[in-house]
Simulated scan of single mutants.
Amino acid sequence: MPTRRSALKLPLLGLPMTLAAPWPSWAAPPRLAVRGQDIVGPDGQPILLRGWNWGHWAQIELQDAAENAAQGANAVRIPLRYWGNYPGKGVESRDDNATATAGLAPANIAKLDQIVRAASAAKLWIVLFLDSDCGQNGVMQPEQQRFCDPGGQYGANGHNFWTDAAMRQKFIAAWRFVASRYKDTPYLGLFEPLPEPNPHGTPGGQIKAFYAEVMAAIREAAPGVPLLIGGRSYHAQAIDDVFDPAWKDVVYTGNLFLHAKARGADDAALAEFRDRLKRLADFRAQHNVPVFVQQVGVRSKEDPDRRALREMMQALVSSRVGFTYWDYRGAGNPDEYSVLFERGRDWVTKREWIDTISAAFKQR
């Protein structure tokens, strides 16, 4: 049954909107850690993180955190969109004039405070990432290229963090601010420096070097918080390019979207999904490091009987690979990935989809 959408309102949980540090530094909470192939909880025992992506940042609802926890989730992946041509007013957070907040729009930081507080209060381990469509690549679509490089001075390689060293330093400064601000958050799980890096004409080793520079800044600002990284475009087959045996606080990732035919998932699509998952699991065993799938999903229109969804969830459970499903709330029609979609002013729940994914959350 449709439910009326509600706005993300301030203040949340009776807390005032403020740009003061949201958590006292003396209250550093227990953290996740990396131990061999496992992410371990504060009790030292392996933990499988499973939950949702709150990827459509402007559409997060206050009740989502408690709902997700009730569904069996123990994790949530939350973005801060930094520099890019994002749909929706106020989604891009870059504001070079906001010197007090390291070039991040104060209103967006205040909103992120509330989103993070809600997830933390529901005891969901938070995977917090800074996204930048320009910084990752800058040439994904013509309109994105025009936005990132309005003067056309960067050419075919795009205006990104590899072609513009000054922009890279601005991004690192933003990360220092974010890492310092949220380091003492209860249930702050992982920091994800930059999803899906794909700079044109740049070898994988330079992607690894970029991560090394950003992670050094994050570690300095928030020592002890594990980090999540992946290879080019987060392809499973590119994961080796960013491996470093010296990094003892890193979890590795790859996307696991399944693209099926409109009439339904076929055996070839499912076999290709299992191959990519096996690639991640083999990498885990070979290098004795943890892996975590930060985005897994299939469009509803491509899997009308949920066959692919069921098999994807079972494969992840059997492989003991944690994941956050893309995504919880956001699409404007029932055909896309999200399990809640908008119809006019209402949210409609795809109940069978939630139940299938929730069942996977609860398996041990």
Rank of each mutant, 00 (worst) to 15 (best):
P197F: 02
H159K: 12
S93P: 01
H200D: 12
R146I: 03
E196L: 08
S120K: 03
F191Q: 05
V139P: 01
W162K: 04
G152H: 11
H200S: 13
W175V: 11
W175I: 10
A100Y: 01
I126N: 05
P193I: 12
P197G: 08
T185L: 05
A166V: 14
F161L: 15
L190F: 13
F171S: 06
M140I: 07
E192Q: 15
D96N: 06
H159I: 00
I172H: 00
K123V: 00
V139R: 10
D95I: 00
K111S: 11
A110I: 06
P142K: 06
F171H: 11
T99C: 02
K123G: 03
T202N: 00
S120I: 03
S120G: 07
V178S: 09
S132A: 10
A179V: 07
P199S: 05
G158N: 09
A110W: 02
D184Y: 01
G152I: 08
G103S: 11
V91F: 00
E192H: 15
K183R: 15
V116A: 01
P199A: 03
T202G: 00
L190Y: 04
R117G: 05
L104P: 13
A121H: 13
D113W: 05
E143L: 13
L188R: 04
P195F: 00
D95G: 03
K170I: 10
C148T: 11
N97A: 15
F147R: 04
A173F: 00
L104M: 12
G138W: 04
D164F: 05
F171R: 06
Y154F: 15
L104D: 07
T185W: 02
I115G: 01
A98N: 09
R168T: 13
D149C: 08
G189P: 04
D184R: 00
A98W: 03
N157M: 04
L188K: 06
R94T: 01
A122C: 07
W162A: 07
R117E: 07
R94I: 09
V178G: 03
N198D: 13
A156C: 02
L194A: 11
D149P: 10
G90L: 04
D113T: 05
G135N: 11
E143A: 14
C134E: 03
H159E: 04
